[in-house]
């Protein structure tokens, strides 16, 4: 299984906001352990989906030069469960951007209805953890790059 918890970006406004969708499928292994008799999408994986959407939004501001890592989940509230067949939409808005870190506000929708609010912060690892010898660009791998490329081509052309 690949650690990619969004299926597609549907909207992308550089430096402002991004929207991604995630279709929840019973083919996903983890749902059979969480739980076999009653599969529901784990909330931490929805948080990860928001983090991935937000990570792309934040990373793009600096042309993906810095590795953006999740540093803090300030708030994560859910008021409904998500089951196979549901479509999730993650909307993130960039609230603050500083040289060393960024903050976003996220909303989780299930089939169009808001079911969660998430605020989180990202750290620019390369600016904050000098000396750790981090591999170059270990966050933004091919799949994420390919998701955002169509939007950037449109913006540039």
């Amino acid at each position: 299984m690949r650690w990619i918890w969004i299926d597609r970006l549907t909207e992308f406004e550089p430096g402002k906001r991004a929207v991604a969708v995630k279709n929840v499928s019973l083919a996903e292994e983890h749902l059979h352990d969480h739980w076999e008799a009653y599969p529901i999408m784990p909330a931490p994986l929805m948080i990860e989906g928001v983090a991935q959407t937000g990570g792309i939004l934040v990373g793009q501001v600096n042309d993906f030069k810095y590795d953006v890592v999740l540093a803090k989940i300030s708030k994560a509230e859910f008021n409904d469960i998500v089951v196979p067949g549901d479509q999730l939409t993650y909307e993130v808005v960039l609230e603050h951007m500083a040289p060393e870190a960024a903050a976003i506000a996220g909303t989780v929708r299930k089939n169009g209805e808001i079911i969660g609010t998430i605020n989180m912060m990202f750290s620019h690892a390369n600016n904050n953890m000098q000396g750790l010898d981090l591999p170059e660009n270990f966050v933004f791998t091919g799949s994420f790059q390919r998701m955002v490329e169509p939007f950037l081509e449109n913006a540039n052309g």
């Binding site: 803090k72 603050h96 500083a98 040289p99 060393e100 870190a101 903050a103 912060m121 750290s123």
Partner: peptide
């Protein structure tokens, strides 16, 4: 450490002020 930056971000928003690094 990350909280200090979070606090700075929130104060800027809440009081509508700029807090230079």
């Amino acid at each position: 450490s990350i909280d200090f930056l979070d606090i700075v971000f929130r104060l800027e928003k809440s009081f509508d002020i700029k807090i230079p690094r």
